[in-house]
Computed example of a mutant assay.
Amino acid sequence: MNQSQLPAGDEKTRGLHRFAVLTAGATFCLIFVGGLVTSTGSALAVPDWPLAFGKLIPAWEGGIRFEFGHRLAAGTVVVLTLVLMAWAWRTEPRRWVRKLVALAFGLIVVQAILGGITVLLELPLAIAVAHAATAQALLCLMVSIAIFTNPRWSTTPHVDDPPSRIPLPTLAAAMTAVIYLQILIGAVMRHMSAGLVIPDFPLSFGHLAPPYWDEYIAINFAHRCGAVVVTAMVLWTVARVLRAHREVDALRRPALGLILLLVVQICLGAITIWSDRAVLPTTSHVALGAAVLATGLTLTLRAYRILGAPPRAHAIESHASSRVIEREVTA
Rank of each mutant, 00 (worst) to 15 (best):
G257Y: 09
A128Y: 01
L168Q: 00
G195S: 11
V241M: 11
L258R: 02
A218H: 00
V228M: 14
L171M: 13
P310L: 08
A218N: 00
P211M: 08
T23V: 13
V159P: 01
P202L: 05
M192H: 05
T272D: 10
L123K: 13
E11S: 15
G34P: 00
L260K: 07
L84H: 13
L120E: 09
L261E: 06
G9L: 12
F28E: 09
A104G: 10
A104W: 05
A290L: 10
V263M: 11
P47M: 09
I273D: 09
W213T: 07
V264A: 15
P281L: 09
F205S: 11
A86F: 14
R65I: 11
A45G: 05
Y180S: 10
V109W: 15
G116S: 11
Y216G: 06
H314V: 14
W87C: 03
A74H: 02
G269N: 07
E326P: 00
A135V: 07
I306D: 02
L301P: 02
L51R: 14
G63Q: 01
M233G: 04
A88T: 14
R327V: 02
G195V: 06
T156K: 11
V230Q: 05
L84S: 09
T298W: 08
R152H: 14
V97S: 03
V178M: 10
A146Q: 01
G186V: 03
T300P: 01
R327K: 12
S204G: 09
S42Y: 01
A287K: 08
H319E: 14
G62F: 04
G106K: 06
A303H: 01
V83F: 13
A227H: 02
P310N: 02
V101E: 06
G289E: 10
A132C: 03
A255N: 08
G257I: 06
V286S: 13
L293N: 07
E328V: 14
L72V: 11
I145H: 01
R243V: 13
P151H: 12
I113P: 04
R190F: 04
S275L: 08
D10M: 10
G41I: 06
V78Y: 09
T170I: 09
L299Q: 05
V279L: 13
A26M: 14
T27V: 13
G69F: 06
T176W: 08
L280P: 04
A331I: 00
L72R: 05
G206N: 04
L103H: 01
V21G: 01
G62C: 00
A232L: 15
L16K: 08
V229S: 02
L251S: 10
A130R: 03
S144G: 13
F148T: 11
A227D: 07
S4V: 12
L16G: 10
L138V: 07
P50I: 06
R224N: 10
A320C: 02
G226M: 09
L141Q: 08
I266E: 01
V83I: 15
A244E: 14
L268D: 05
A194N: 05
R240C: 12
L203T: 14
I219Y: 03
R246P: 00
I183T: 06
A278I: 00
A187D: 03
R98Q: 15
D160Q: 07
T295K: 11
L139H: 05
